[in-house]
Design a protein around this nucleic acid. Structure first.
Lengths: 185, 185
DNA sequence: CAACCTAATGTCAGTAGCTGACAAAAGTCA
DNA sequence: TGACTTTTGTCAGCTACTGACATTAGGTTG
C-alpha cells in the first residue's frame, strides 16, 4: 500500500502498473494480487478498517438517541479518521477527481459500503425492514451526499478548511429538505 | 446491444465475452469497442438517451414550481421510460444484482450521471453554487436513493408492482427526514 | 459513370489487469 | 530435527481494451 501510494502520487494512477508496485514493494505481482483483489482496492486498502470504525461508532450510540444525532456523531468519527490519515485521504480524493476508475471504485465500493452500514443501523433503530420501508435508504443516501459535498469542499481547500465544520454544515441541511418546497423569493 | 442483451440473459455477464458479442452481432471486436468504451457501457448503451430525457424533463418544468414537485414529476418521466423499456431495464437490474462490475457501473456512471443533472437543476432553481451550498447535492442524493429503493422493490417483484406508486411512496419520505429525530414510541 | 473523398470496418499485434496451478520457501510447533 | 501449514514465487493464460494501418463502403462531384 505504501509503495502504491508513493507511485500513484508521483506518476498517477493509470500511469502506474501493478508490476511497478509489486517491484517497489519487493514482492511478486502474484503476491500483490493475493492481498488486494484490484488495483483500486490497493489504493483504498485501509478502508475496511474505517468501515469497521463506522460500524462500531453506530453501535456505540444509545438506542434511544435521535437518529439525526446518531448520524452526526458517527460522521464526526469519520472526520476524525480523515484527519488522522490526512495524506492518504487527500491522495485518494485527488486521484478520484482525476481518474474515472478510481472515482467509480470510491462510489461503488467504498461509499456504498458505508451507506449499507448506515441503512442497516437506521433500519434497526426505526424497527423497520429496509427493503420495505424507503426511509432508511433515503436518510442514509442524504447523509452520504452530505459527506461527499463536505469532502469535496475539504479536498478543494487542500485539507485546509475545518472538515468537521463542513460536515456539520452539510448534515444540517437534511432536516430542511422539505422546506425547499418554497422557491427562493 | 441486442446481441449483448441476448447473450447476457442466456449465459450471464461475466460468462459472455466481448468476442462472443461481436461475433453474434456480425462485427469485429474492434468495431464493437469503437461504439462502446466498455462491456458495461454496452449493456447500458441506451442510457445516454434516458439522461437527455431527464434533462429535458427538468427543463420543461416551470421555474417557480416547488422543487419537490419538480423532482416528483421528473422521476415519473423516468418511471415512464422504465416501463417503455421494461425488459431491458429488468435485465440491467438483475445483472446489477448478480455482478459486481455491473452494479459498480450502474452506481458510478449511470446513477451518478442522473444525479449530476439533478444537482445542476436544483442549484439553478435555488440560485446557488452547488459547490458552496450543500443542499442541491443532498436533495439530489436523497432523490436518487428514493429511485434506488423503488427500483429494487420493483425489480424484486419482477416488474409486477406499480413502479410509479413505489417511486411516489419513496419520494414522499424526503420531506419527513427531519422528523426522524424522534425515535419510534 | 467514374473519380474522389470521407467515414466506418477489419486485421493484427500488443498492453495491462487479473487468475489458476503448482512448486519453493518460510514460519510454526511437537 | 522433522512434520505441517501458510505464504510466496513462477509461469502460463485469459479477457478487456487500444494503437496503427490497411480495406471497404457510402456519398459527392465533375
Amino acid at each position: 500500500m505504501e509503495a502504491g501510494a508513493r507511485l500513484f502520487k508521483d506518476r498517477g494512477f493509470d500511469e502506474t502498473t501493478t508490476s511497478d508496485i509489486a517491484e517497489a514493494a519487493d514482492v511478486s505481482q502474484r503476491t500483490l494480487f493475493r492481498h488486494f483483489p484490484t488495483k483500486e482496492a490497493l489504493l483504498y486498502g485501509d478502508m475496511e478498517e474505517l468501515q469497521l470504525e463506522l460500524r462500531d461508532a453506530l453501535a456505540d450510540r444509545p438506542l434511544d438517541e435521535p437518529i439525526l444525532t446518531v448520524l452526526r456523531a458517527v460522521m464526526l468519527s469519520l472526520a476524525d479518521n480523515f484527519e488522522r490519515h490526512r495524506d492518504r485521504r487527500l491522495l485518494q480524493a485527488s486521484l478520484a477527481a482525476r481518474y474515472q476508475s478510481v472515482s467509480a471504485y470510491s462510489r461503488a465500493v467504498v461509499q456504498t459500503g458505508w451507506e449499507r452500514e448506515l441503512i442497516i443501523a437506521v433500519a434497526a433503530r426505526l424497527g423497520v425492514d429496509p427493503m420495505m420501508d424507503p426511509r432508511p435508504e433515503i436518510l442514509a443516501g442524504a447523509t452520504m451526499s452530505a459527506i461527499r459535498i463536505a469532502t469535496r469542499q475539504w479536498t478543494a481547500s487542500g485539507g485546509g478548511e475545518d472538515y468537521i465544520a463542513l460536515i456539520i454544515n452539510a448534515l444540517d441541511a437534511i432536516p430542511e429538505l422539505g422546506s425547499f418546497d418554497r422557491p427562493t423569493p
